[in-house]
Simulated scan of single mutants.
Amino acid sequence: MGDPHSGLHSERGALAGERPGRAANPVIKVHDLAWLEFEKPNLTRAEVFARAFGFTTVLSTRHELHLRGTDAGAPCVLIRKGPRSKFLGPAFLAATPGDVLRLAEATGRPVAALPDALGGVVVDLADPSGLRVRVVSDTHELPALPPQDPHVLNLGHEVRRVNATQRPPRAPALVQRLGHVVLQTTRYGEALDWYLRHLGLIVSDFLYYPGQRERGPVMSFIRCDRGATPADHHTLAMVLGPADRYVHSAYQVADLDALAAGGEYLRERGYQHSWGIGRHIEGSQLFDYWRDPDGFLVEHFSDGDLFDNTLEPGWAPLTASGLAQWGPPATADFLGVKPGRESLRELRAVFSALRGDNEFDAQRLLGLLKVARS
C-alpha cells in the first residue's frame, strides 16, 4: 500500500490560467494581525482558561478582558462581556500610520480613535461575508515579558547538552504571540479578492476539492507581504463552507516540549482536547488544538514556515488526511462533524446555503463530504 501522504504537499504551482495569489495594486499592505475580538458571557471563566492556555492578563474588569503573549506589542485577544459567545472580528496592524488614512480614503470609511487602554487609531471595514475587519496603527506597545525558553536539544550526533537532564515543567505553555486566524465563508472567492485587494495579503497555498480543481480553490493560506522580510506562512486562512464563521485561531509557543507539557496541564484541568499533537503540511507547524469553555477552537503551535514575497502559491487537494504530515487522524471534533450543537448548526447552515445566493452549491457540498471521509 502506498504512502497516503504522497502527492499532498503543495510545492507544485498553478496551472495556466488559474487564480493569482495576489492583487496587482493593493490599497495597502498590512504588517501583521494585531488582535482578535470576542464577546463572551462569563469573563471570569474565560480568564481562568486563558491563564491555563498560557496568556497573561493585561486588563480585567467586569466588562472587558485583554490578554497578551510574552512578545512586545498590543494585547492579542480582546474579550468583551456580552449575552452570548461570539467572534467579533480580526484587527490588522498597518505597516505605517499613513496606511490607515489611505485605506479610509479608498473605502470612504472614517478614522476613529481607539480606547485609551489600546491607544492609536482604527478604520473599520466589512468584508464580503459581513465580518468587521479593523486596521489599526499607533497602538500602545507593551514591553516584552520574560519568555519560556526553548529546550537545548541533542540532535542526532550534534551534542549540545551534557551532564544535564530534560525536565519540561507541567505548566502552561506561555503564548508568545498571535499567529493566525482561520475563517469560513460562503463567499470564498469574493472574500479572498477583498483581502488581497484591500490589505495586500498574498496567498501561500491554495487547496481545492479533489476532482474539482477546474472550479478553483476552496481554501487559501494567506500571509502578509513584507517584501524581502519573511512572514508567517499564513496570518489568515479562509475556507469555503455553508456558514460564515470563525474556525480557529493559533498562538505561538516556544517549542514542542512547551506545547506538549502545556497540553498536559490543560488536560489535567479538564479542558477539552480537539486534535494533536502533529505537524501540518501547509505551514509545517507543530500543532495542538483545544476547545475553550465557550467552544471556540484554539491552537498552540511552534516551528512554522516563514516566506518572503518571492514565493508563488502552491496548489494541492484538500483532504482530511492531508491536514498533517504526522500525528493522529483529524478528529470529528476538529472537522466539525462530531455529533452535537456545532455540527447541528452546520447541518442547518448547509440547507440554508444551498437555497441562498452564495458560492456553496450542491457540487461543493459533495466535495466537502469527500473531504470529511478522506
Results as ranks from 00 to 15, higher is better:
234 H>C: 00
344 L>D: 12
122 V>E: 04
78 L>T: 07
15 L>W: 13
177 R>C: 12
233 H>L: 07
259 L>T: 10
91 A>Q: 03
252 Q>N: 07
370 K>M: 09
291 R>V: 01
241 G>D: 11
201 L>T: 03
78 L>H: 10
324 A>S: 15
323 L>N: 08
100 V>E: 02
351 F>Y: 06
318 L>Q: 06
186 T>C: 14
165 T>K: 00
28 I>D: 05
66 H>A: 12
154 N>R: 06
216 G>N: 09
182 V>E: 06
188 Y>K: 00
158 E>N: 13
108 G>R: 00
300 H>Q: 03
290 W>G: 02
199 L>P: 01
335 L>R: 05
86 K>F: 14
322 G>S: 10
309 N>A: 15
204 S>C: 06
99 D>W: 01
156 G>I: 07
52 A>E: 13
202 I>C: 06
374 S>A: 10
210 P>G: 08
227 G>H: 05
348 R>P: 00
104 A>C: 08
301 F>I: 01
232 D>A: 12
87 F>L: 00
336 G>Q: 02
345 R>E: 12
14 A>W: 02
58 V>F: 03
280 H>K: 04
27 V>A: 12
296 F>E: 01
255 D>Y: 08
156 G>F: 12
349 A>H: 09
259 L>A: 12
248 H>E: 02
64 E>K: 12
297 L>Q: 02
108 G>I: 06
368 L>W: 15
151 H>T: 13
35 W>S: 02
3 D>A: 08
358 N>E: 03
272 Q>M: 03
320 A>F: 12
159 V>L: 14
348 R>W: 13
218 V>Y: 12
150 P>R: 03
139 T>C: 13
171 A>Y: 07
302 S>P: 04
340 G>T: 07
17 G>Q: 08
169 P>E: 11
304 G>L: 09
353 A>V: 06
172 P>V: 11
13 G>A: 07
326 W>D: 05
311 L>N: 11
302 S>V: 11
316 A>Y: 11
363 Q>M: 06
18 E>R: 05
174 L>Y: 14
359 E>Q: 15
320 A>E: 11
323 L>I: 11
255 D>M: 09
258 A>C: 12
44 T>M: 05
310 T>G: 14
263 G>W: 02
20 P>C: 07
294 D>L: 01
348 R>V: 08
90 P>I: 03
223 R>T: 07
342 E>C: 01
163 N>D: 04
83 P>F: 15
248 H>C: 02
277 I>P: 13
302 S>D: 05
100 V>G: 04
302 S>H: 09
3 D>N: 15
167 R>S: 10
223 R>Y: 10
264 E>T: 11
178 L>Y: 11
208 Y>N: 00
228 A>L: 08
112 A>C: 10
14 A>I: 03
364 R>S: 14
223 R>P: 03
216 G>I: 09
136 V>P: 05
199 L>K: 02
62 R>H: 13
68 R>W: 10
147 P>K: 00
182 V>K: 01
161 R>S: 07
186 T>K: 13
211 G>S: 04
320 A>T: 15
209 Y>Q: 00
48 V>I: 14
230 P>S: 02
298 V>R: 00
156 G>P: 05
181 V>H: 07
115 P>K: 06
147 P>L: 07
308 D>A: 14
129 S>Y: 04
312 E>S: 15
101 L>S: 14
153 L>H: 13
68 R>G: 05
280 H>S: 03
260 A>S: 11
234 H>P: 03
239 V>L: 11
168 P>K: 09
358 N>K: 05
216 G>H: 10
95 A>S: 12
156 G>K: 04
316 A>Q: 04
